[in-house]
Write a protein that binds this DNA or RNA. Structure first.
Lengths: 247, 247
DNA sequence: GCTCGGCATTGACCCAAATCAAAAGCTCGG
DNA sequence: CCGAGCTTTTGATTTGGGTCAATGCCGAGC
């Protein structure tokens, strides 16, 4: 759990100074799904001057719950897990963030949760103060954040329903289905389970053993077909949805 | 579960037309803790023209999950529960809102959850469209909403930790402690449990029997002292906090 | 004051998922 | 290519909280 400070960093400030060609932001592959989508090209230039790109390996801590909230991030590639812990070590993962997602929106002094990379991850980092200043000048960006906060809240409520009221089998079915839908956009053949069984368990409020059994069962019953331990395809969308106990 | 349409409503438009005296908003008792706190007096006037005051009895439905999101609300007095349901009737209450809280922030066409009054409740209702138009002209209001969304998100994450990883005893202790802290501000002697055991159970992901047993146990162990079924005082803050397994 | 009906408590029993234990696959350094 | 140390799977056993059942309590209406 090494900290992110010693990560491979690539500040864009130097690049911007050295002659005006296509900027990183303009050619950004995830721009269409990032917070940046709401910004005009000139605003993007402004954003880019405060951006630091980072490439992090798996298992790197971005920040811990309680740390002063100094940065905001957008994810470029890879995945981040957000989690809270109890003093005795019990952990609840509150969400997995994928390419295009935004991270660090905290209207408080400190982060309310910890964040750690799941696989190798590429991200953009913004200093909080300067990003907030940007908000003043670009109301569309603020709308975008409000909209994202709103859908995160909806997702959180859905997860509370899962944690409070669904059986183990239903939780795992819901999870596999949600992952499949999320990755359907990026149109690969199989769905990737980047995270370990341990992470899945801590996300679903179960143990690794229960997760493993439920996945095996879903495979045996033909709801999904496991390719290997970290890849599957949805074999029967209808029955998987039925097993998830929700739309 | 009658709908709110036939509620006692009091539009302020008539009042505003009939001579300029102190408006409802200006004398509002919860203004200091509502979204309205961020608004100047003149902006308040504007807000007031789109406000409908409503007084609702217990158990009244404000809206159901999936309904078109036509209104926003602030709570004046009383309490609202937000919840989601599965098709077979299992219910998860995702939050209780009290005086000063804001409700209906949904950047979507439809509500993502249902809302129902817990006790008798007094609230202000705004038509969504006109409220959103107001946002354009009052960026401070937008900041206020973003800030509220952000703290709701933090609360949701805390609740996920509770639902996913805490024992029944810890959940009930957490709930009692949070209620006590929330009501400490409004400085009464005892903490009121407005909601039924059924509601508490559906909020904590437990059954009424388990909630009842945990409350009795907390009482027997001297963590709290029950006054009657709907009132208690915190008898040992330290041990109650310890039993809740979190700060 | 009495009775009815809904909430809340208490008790007995059961089961889904946790825990404990061990084997089987991967993966990566040497 | 081997083997140490992981993650994952599978099996046996235990248990916290759910389920079922009964009783108690309290307010509303008669």
């Amino acid at each position: 759990m090494r900290r992110a400070d010693n990560a491979v960093e690539q500040s864009t400030e130097g690049a911007a100074a050295g002659g005006r060609c296509a900027t990183l932001c303009e050619t950004c592959r995830v721009r269409a799904i990032s917070v940046c989508r709401s910004m005009a090209i000139d605003a993007l230039d402004e954003l880019e001057t405060i951006t630091t790109r980072m490439k992090l390996p798996a298992g790197r801590v971005l920040f811990d719950e309680g740390d002063p909230a100094e940065h905001l991030f957008t994810i470029h590639e890879g995945a981040i897990k957000l989690f809270k812990m109890l003093r005795d070590g019990r952990r609840q993962i509150t969400g997995f963030l994928l390419a295009g997602d935004f991270l660090g929106l905290a209207f408080f002094r400190t982060y309310a949760y910890s964040a750690e990379t799941v696989g190798d991850t590429l991200l953009c980092r913004f200093p909080r103060e300067r990003f907030m200043a940007l908000l003043e000048r670009h109301p569309m960006l603020e709308k975008e954040l409000l909209s994202r906060a709103s859908s995160e809240l909806a997702a959180a409520q859905e997860q509370m329903l899962l944690l409070g009221r669904k059986s183990a089998r239903e939780r795992v079915a819901s999870f596999l289905l949600a992952l499949a839908r999320r990755q359907a956009a990026s149109g690969r053949g199989s769905v990737e389970l980047v995270m370990s069984r341990y992470d899945i368990a801590d996300y679903l409020g179960l143990t690794i053993e229960t997760v493993s059994r439920a996945i095996q069962a879903a495979n045996a019953e033909g709801l999904i077909r496991m390719i290997d331990r970290h890849h599957f395809v949805v074999a029967d969308q209808g029955r998987l949805a039925a097993a998830s106990a929700s739309g």
